[in-house]
Nucleic acid binder design. Structure first.
Lengths: 128, 128
DNA sequence: CCGTATCCCTCCGGATACTG
DNA sequence: CAGTATCCGGAGGGATACGG
């Protein structure tokens, strides 16, 4: 492959390392990306979101949204009517996150066949 | 922002969804990216790698490397000498993965200040 | 040197029930 | 409707000891 492979800054400050792996762990989270993807199509209310995600528990949706709100990715708007109404929407930062996440998603889709066959080969050779 | 919402990109094939979130979860894994980053600088032996990563247990290094090998990201080469020697190196696929991962890492570095201040604001308002 | 096998404890996350 | 509170099973992952 290209000789100009990016030289890796293994010596980045550990503070950066923590912060970066922190973001990465959110992307790897079971629900976060799914929620952000859906909010990427437009604002949504709590139970609406719950239905759109499908399979998420109330607890985890709350937790996920709180984290995203805390990180400034999601804006929470409360309308104090009866019954109460709460809207969630992505902030600019949240929408921004979708760019690199989609890049990763595209890579995954483009290479899932290779990965799948690699796994088959590996598991096959593990017959013992 | 968007037009109306009857369009649901959420309905992509669930097979794709599983596979993609599977890759994402590996990226979010505590050790995987770190190991891949280091292997991105060149091949390495087991304990050498262990020292370079720092803080990883023998068990988790083995587990991480096995997963990566199974997925076709890492090639494992055994030299049956005494003492035995095992080298690990990235495959083309593994090096390829680094591209979108670095994009995400760059985004994280570029935005960690915003996130950090968002958190401060959030936690501050949580004083009650 | 390069692992595998156990033990064990923490935390994630689902189910359920209750409030404003 | 939009949460909070509680219980609890199971996976993740560290420490340690042993095998090739």
């Amino acid at each position: 492959m290209t000789d100009s492979h990016p030289r890796l800054p293994v010596e980045v400050e550990s503070a950066d390392c923590r912060a970066i792996s922190d973001i990465l762990s959110r992307v790897g989270d079971k629900w976060t990306v799914l929620v952000v993807e859906i909010l990427g199509t437009g604002p949504s209310r709590f139970n609406e979101l719950r239905r759109q995600v499908g399979g998420i528990s109330q607890k985890m949706l709350t937790t996920t949204l709180r984290q995203l709100e805390r990180d400034g990715m999601v804006r929470r708007t409360v309308t104090a009517t009866i019954p109460p109404r709460v809207d969630y929407e992505l902030t600019d930062l949240g929408r921004d996150l979708l760019v690199p996440v989609h890049a990763l998603g595209d890579w995954a889709r483009a290479n899932m066949a290779k990965i799948e066959s690699a796994r088959l080969r590996f598991d096959e050779e593990a017959e013992s």
